[in-house]
Every structure is written in structure tokens, then in C-alpha cells.
Amino acid sequence: MASFERSDDGRLEPSAALSRTFAKTGRRAWNTHLLWSLMPKCEGARYIYIVRNGDDAVVSFWHHLRNQRGDAGQFDGSLDDFSRRLVNSELPYGPWAVHVADWARALDDPRVLVLRYDKMRADLDGAVREIAAHLDVPFSADCVRHCSFDAMRASESRYEPRSVQWAPGFRFLRHGTSGDGDSALSDDAKRLLREDFHARCDSLPAATKARLLERLSLGDSLEPSDIEQPLLRPRADVVMREIA
């Protein structure tokens, strides 16, 4: 945060030193787990929030934490126990629903682009075009090729967190598909996650909650006990593009 300074009107802007660096190197990108409320808000920045099916996100995070080794620690328990502890804020980064509800307040910010993981998988070309338009950069078909799961897995070391040690045989990029949550989570876990989602979103203004449900294709008539439609939660991949 030392690289940012408050402007006279209270906005957080890049420091003079950081601006000089941007002028030399061009645009910079960050991948972060931060809530929207904690993100530096810069006029020239562009933010991309990637939201994954919530049930799938929970299963993916369970695999992640139970295969960690070393100082990062690991989770040793069932998927049901993991879901319960996640909802109770007993695991790193807190409940997914908190993350979604916080970023929901940015839905109308023109600097923010919200993308759904499953739609990116279904139409990667379209997603890259949408990102390019949001960042005001030319579309590149070569970028689409490099963003495919197969291409990313071929260069897996570029995407693995370097601060974490992994269990032997574990692959950080597991299979890049959707649907794990539907098959792996129990009905009780799905119901718990859904109830938590609705409870967290109830704190939002009615109009914001309605836009969130519409944007994530949840529908505004779902009841907390309805477990047929999986929740959509963030994969915690947020990219901030800072434009000098």
C-alpha cells in the first residue's frame, strides 16, 4: 500500500514513484483475494471479478487446503465438516458468501467486469473479447490459446502459489471443469451453503441483491431450502489492471 497515496479529495491513487514505473513498463496486473471494500480504488484501474459456482468452489478449496503442506498448514476433515467451518468463518478467507455480498456493491461500477467461470469455460473466445473490451486493448486470438486449461496446465508452475508446499502427486490445476459440487457435496452441505448465501445477501440493499441474483442467474424466487440450483460464489481470482 506504500505505493499508493491519497489525493486531495480522498481518492487512493498511485504514488509518483509508481506512476513513473508504469510509464516505463506499461500496464500492470495483480491477482488478489481482497474484498471489494478493501481494494484500492483508482480512477484509471480496471477490475475483473471471476465468480465460480459456489458448490464447485467449496469442493475446489477443500482439495486445496487438504493437500497443503508445510507452514501453510492443511485441513484434515470431511467435506461436510469443511463446509460447516467455512460458513462459520473458521477457515482462511472466510465464507464465500461474504465475498460475493461485498463485491455485489461493485456491480454498477463501470470499472468492474464480473465474469462467470462456467461461461468462460463454455466460451473462452467470448470471455477474452469481453476482457479486452473492458481493458480497452486489442483482442488477441493467441491470448485465447494461452488461456485454455490445457495450455495453463502445460505451464502449471507459472500458476501454482510459490508460498505453498503440496502433497505428493497433487496438481494445483486439477481438471478445470464444473459440477464437482453437485456430485461431491451432501444435501445438508448444499442447504447450509445456500442458507448462508441468502443470510449474507439479506444485508444488501434490495435493489443490489436483485441485481446480484440476476447477474449470477440465481433468480429472485429461490428459497434458502432450494438446493436444485447451485450457488455461484467467487473463485477468489480478482485481477486489478492499473492504467498509468
Rank of each mutant, 00 (worst) to 15 (best):
L86N: 04
L34Q: 08
F61T: 03
N53A: 03
Q74N: 09
I227N: 09
E43K: 13
A72W: 01
K24H: 09
R191C: 04
V114I: 08
A141R: 11
L192E: 00
C143D: 13
A236S: 08
S225G: 14
E214M: 08
G176C: 07
R235M: 11
W62E: 02
V98I: 07
H175S: 07
D182V: 12
H146D: 14
D196K: 01
T32Y: 06
L193M: 06
I131S: 12
P92N: 10
G94E: 08
R52L: 10
D108Y: 11
S15V: 04
D55V: 00
I243V: 10
W62H: 10
I131C: 15
M1N: 10
P92Q: 10
A29Y: 12
A45H: 06
R129Y: 03
A29W: 07
L107P: 04
Y159H: 10
G169N: 08
G73N: 04
Y47L: 13
D142V: 15
V87E: 07
D71G: 05
H198C: 02
M39L: 10
C42D: 14
G126F: 08
Q74D: 09
D55N: 02
V87S: 07
R52T: 05
A106S: 11
V137D: 00
D109P: 11
D187M: 07
I243N: 12
D237M: 11
L113T: 03
N88R: 15
P95K: 12
G26R: 12
L79D: 02
A29V: 06
A57F: 00
G73F: 02
A210L: 11
F172A: 11
D196M: 02
H198Q: 04
L12K: 14
S157H: 05
G181S: 14
R171A: 14
L38H: 05
V112E: 06
R153L: 15
L91F: 03
N88W: 04
F172E: 08
G176F: 07
W103H: 13
D220E: 12
L213I: 03
A132S: 15
E130A: 15
F75W: 12
R66T: 04
N53P: 00
C143N: 09
Q74P: 00
V144Y: 04
G126W: 04
V128R: 06
R129P: 06
I50K: 00
E228P: 03
W96E: 02
V112N: 06
H175T: 03
G44T: 13
R116K: 09
R27E: 10
D8H: 12
R158N: 09
S60I: 00
G181P: 14
R28C: 12
R6T: 13
R215A: 13
M1C: 10
V112W: 07
N53S: 01
L185F: 09
V51G: 04
L173G: 05
H33I: 15
S89M: 02
G54P: 01
E223H: 08
D237Q: 04
W30R: 06
